[in-house]
Design a protein around this nucleic acid. Structure first.
Length: 828
RNA sequence: GCCUGAGUGGUGGAAUUGGUAGACACACGGGACUUAAAAUCCUGUGGGGGAAACCCCGUGACGGUUCGAAUCCGUCCUCAGGCACCA
């Protein structure tokens, strides 16, 4: 009765079965323990790539495993559907972004379904639907009320080809994260989310995320960039308001000889006005601001600047410090102004030497005395203060506090903490995104769209201008509205939100995707969240994960969520590699998952992805490896039917079969233990599969031990083994296992079958193998009864001929016995 | 430069945390079946020596701790990723 294994038929059959029985539907049920598994939702680019497949395979094993463990599992899927590629495709193919996006979603959904993932498709969502983004608009307005959103004119990163502003997080090496074009600086109005308000909490909570990879936490910490230091006010000559600076080295204040301003700093032009320096400053500022990031800040950029013509006063020394504009000063960090201490800061040192400015040593190291005139580089390390008035002789670390206190008493500053992270600019001059729900009125300013008018639906009747810019500002009927406050003519905001806003809360919406009385249903979100296991690529280590954490804290403070953090455990899976490089179209090493599925079936693809490497490491794709997975599946199939076809003969007695039975059962239960621990505790799916392969090998050699009918007891043990084999494999390769499970006479729907537990008694053995070492080198092994005494083990070991050879003629100093494992005889 | 990781056979990777290094698989060699090939099954496979029993060497390098080190400590090398004129 053996059938041939036909993956296409088998897989379709069971996918239909699961769908019909609604096996993956997650229902809110506070009486049950929940488990939320989430893989980062995809951008609907057109078709799945191997990276998606791997990501979702890992999540699916966990989801199915937890279902079998009896937990109430939420395992949803949806679409990060707004974004630039849809617009580019629309312009290129003369179609509409919505049409292109929905077509892609349909194709990718059917690919996901073809892979047999255990998603609750009833919870599917797409961020481009008004039912989704209306709540994002609602949240925007709530944040506006709470002062967490504000509008400001600022110098922003701008990408010309994408014709849009980019967040700091979206600039990589001075270039656009999407199209790699160098970004330019530009002054523009835009909306900002006040993520800086949560900087301290976001940083502190890094300690509260033990389930996250250290690498990701470190990246987040660095991004937030906390540094302790002091703020110091420097009075300006002929002006009331002082310049404020931030420094991590207040101990060097006595050595500050000049001041540097970022070219963006408004004081540059203001201070130089009317001085002989005015035109030189204008010229310099202009020049620097039009450079792209690489040219200004790149490795080859030289430090340069010009004098503004103005002076400020060192609050402790009274020294007149010339104020310079310098290209290397960052406007975005600290206050955009820096006190320059050339003796103890390399940048200031280079600048001072170039423009012949004073260098004053104020920190003297132990040993050789620093002399300002002889220095070739700045000394930035520790030492004792000199030339620093009352602080002379003090350790510089102690002086920081002393000087800060003195400044405080003079009302000239004090200790402070500065963060590197900036507020999140969310305005995008693009069409395919969620409209920002604001109306600009000449009289009333920026007025929120009244809540009852939400959602502000993105107009669908549009024409893309030749230039490629957003069509929204040209849509007169949409733009021209009346002010909700004064009723006069007003204009709608035409910017849309950064797509990272949508992905910052989609995991909450999965808990209540059809809820229409609010952004989220507090009760359901309180039950399902946080996500117990989140899985995705490490490329989102900063952006998406930080924004999501920020949103969770906002929603918590609004009373909508009860948790502090969105994701309890995080797994960053490795890339899929082929021929030593990441799969990419430009390298021509892309493997299309669809072709593989068509050829081998979903189970083979799944098994290969899970077996070839541990989840967090890069996966090296080889076609031989895929064939190996295919071979294994066919062996399992043959094994199950081999068992079913075993001849039966009641006259064969059980006599003498006890040991066989014991061995089979021990292997069975050992494997259950190993696989359970590998999935649950270690997330090492590759070794779980390896253990199952060993199990299959073991069953195979027992099954084909001899021709003819086996004793009934052996048949029974083999039956248990085969059933367990199929059960343990089911989260990995769910289709073939359902088919075999059914063939074995069991009820299908394996996610409802309880995950097996092992019987510790069956793991016990009567004898154990002891490795014998002499002076730490293996010289033999001996099998002894488990309950053998230490003396008996020693005796048995020393009786071995090879051991004798190495012990003879020497004195045994001691013998170290590791129970049930090893004996090391130390001789000398 | 700073911060994370990681270096183990021909290859992907094991070694459950200090106790038999190389599980499992891929590739390759030998054999069986076949007219032949594919598939399948059996078998070998870190390097060196030996007929064999066994022995020596071996986890990026060199030291150290220990009865015992891939694992812990120190110094260094290489690779990958992140941050980078952050005052």
């Amino acid at each position: 009765m053996e059938r041939a294994y036909n993956p296409e038929v088998v897989e379709k059959k069971w996918q239909e079965f699961w769908e019909e029985k609604k096996l993956f539907r997650a229902e809110w049920d506070p009486s049950r323990e929940k488990y939320y598994v989430l893989e980062m939702f995809p951008y609907p680019s057109g078709s799945l790539h191997m990276g998606h497949v791997r990501n979702y395979c890992i999540g699916d094993v966990l989801a199915r495993f937890k279902m079998m463990k009896g937990l109430n599992v939420l395992h949803p899927m949806g679409w990060d559907a707004f974004g630039m590629p849809a617009e580019n495709a629309a312009i290129k193919n003369r179609t509409h972004p919505a049409v292109w996006t929905m077509g892609n979603i349909n194709q990718m959904r059917s690919q996901l379904q073809r892979l047999g993932y255990s998603y609750d498709w009833e919870r599917e969502l797409a961020t481009c639907h008004p039912q989704y983004y209306r709540w994002e608009q609602w949240l925007f307005l709530e944040m506006l009320k709470r002062g967490l959103v504000y509008r400001k004119k600022s110098i922003v990163n701008y990408c010309e080809p994408c014709q849009t502003v980019l967040a700091n997080e979206q600039v990589e090496d001075g270039a656009c994260w999407r199209c790699a074009t160098p970004v330019v600086q530009r002054e523009q109005d835009g909306w900002f989310f006040k993520i800086t308000e949560y900087a301290a909490e976001l940083l502190d909570w890094c300690k509260g995320l033990p389930g996250w990879p250290e690498k990701v936490l470190t990246m987040q910490r660095n991004w937030i960039g906390r540094s302790e230091g002091a703020r110091i006010f420097f009075d300006l000559e002929n002006r009331d308001r002082p310049i404020e600076v931030f420094t991590t080295r207040p101990d060097t204040l006595y050595g500050a000889t000049f001041m540097s301003l970022a070219p963006e700093h408004p004081l540059c032009l203001e201070l130089s006005k009317g001085t002989p320096q005015e035109s030189a400053v204008k010229h310099f500022v202009n020049k620097v601001l039009t450079l792209d990031w690489q040219a200004r800040m790149g490795e080859n950029a030289e430090k340069e600047g010009v004098f503004t013509g103005a002076y400020c006063i060192n609050p402790l020394t009274g020294r007149r410090m010339p104020i310079y504009v310098a290209n290397f000063v960052l406007y975005e960090y600290g206050t955009g102004a820096v006190m320059a201490v050339p003796a103890h800061d390399q940048r200031d040192f280079e600048f001072a030497r170039k423009y012949d400015l004073d260098v004053i040593v104020v920190i003297q190291p132990d040993g050789d005395e620093l002399k300002a005139l002889e220095m070739t580089e700045a000394y930035a390390d520790e030492g004792k203060l000199v030339n620093s008035g009352e602080f002379n002789g003090m350790e510089n670390v102690k002086a920081m506090k002393g000087i800060a206190e003195k400044l405080e008493s003079m009302n000239k500053g004090g200790l402070t903490i500065n963060y590197r992270i900036r507020d999140w600019g969310i305005s995008r001059q693009r069409y395919w995104g969620a409209p920002i729900p604001v109306i600009h009125c000449e009289k009333c300013g920026a007025v929120p769209v009244p809540e009852e008018q939400l959602p502000v639906v993105l107009p669908t009747e549009i024409e893309f201008p030749e230039s490629g810019r957003s069509p929204l500002p040209d849509l007169d009927w949409w733009v021209n509205v009346t002010c909700p406050q004064c009723g006069k003519p007003a204009k709608r905001e035409t910017d849309t939100m950064d797509t990272f806003v949508e992905s910052s809360w989609y995991f909450d919406r999965y808990a209540c995707p059809r809820y229409d009385e609010g952004m989220i249903n507090i009760e359901e979100v309180a039950y399902w969240l946080p996500v117990d296991q989140y899985i995705g690529g490490v490329e989102h280590a900063i952006l998406h994960l930080l924004y999501s954490r920020f949103f969770t804290k906002i929603l918590r403070d609004m009373g909508l969520k009860k948790t502090d953090e969105p994701f309890t455990r995080l797994l960053t899976q490795g890339m899929v590699i082929k021929d030593g490089a990441k799969m990419s179209k430009s390298k021509g090493n892309v493997v299309d998952p669809q072709e593989l599925i068509d050829r081998y079936g979903a189970d083979v693809v799944r098994l290969f992805c899970l077996f070839a490497a541990p989840p967090e490491r890069d996966l090296d794709w080889t076609s031989e490896g895929v064939q190996g997975a295919d071979r294994f599946l066919r062996r399992v199939w043959a094994l199950a039917f081999g068992f079913l076809n075993l001849p039966s003969d009641p006259s064969v007695s059980d006599g003498g079969a006890e040991e066989n039975v014991r061995n089979i059962r021990r292997l069975t239960h050992k494997t259950i233990k190993k696989v359970s621990e590998d999935i649950e505790d270690r997330f090492r799916l590759n070794t779980a599969v390896a253990a199952i392969m060993e199990f299959a090998n073991g069953i195979s050699s027992e099954l084909y031990r001899e021709d003819g009918a086996p004793p009934a007891a052996v048949r029974e043990a083999l039956g248990e083994a085969i059933r367990m084999l199929v059960l343990l494999l089911s989260p990995f390769i769910p289709h073939i296992t359902e088919e075999l499970w059914e063939a074995l006479g069991e009820d299908p729907g394996m996610v409802r079958v309880t995950w097996p537990s092992y019987d510790p008694k069956l793991l016990e053995t009567e004898e154990v193998l002891i490795v014998i070492q002499v002076n730490g080198k293996k010289r033999g092994e001996v099998t002894v009864p488990v309950d053998a005494s230490d003396e008996e083990v020693k005796e048995a070991a020393l009786a071995q001929a090879n051991v004798k050879r190495f012990v003879e003629g020497k004195t045994v100093r001691k013998a170290i016995l590791v129970p049930k494992k090893l004996l090391n005889v130390v001789v000398g």
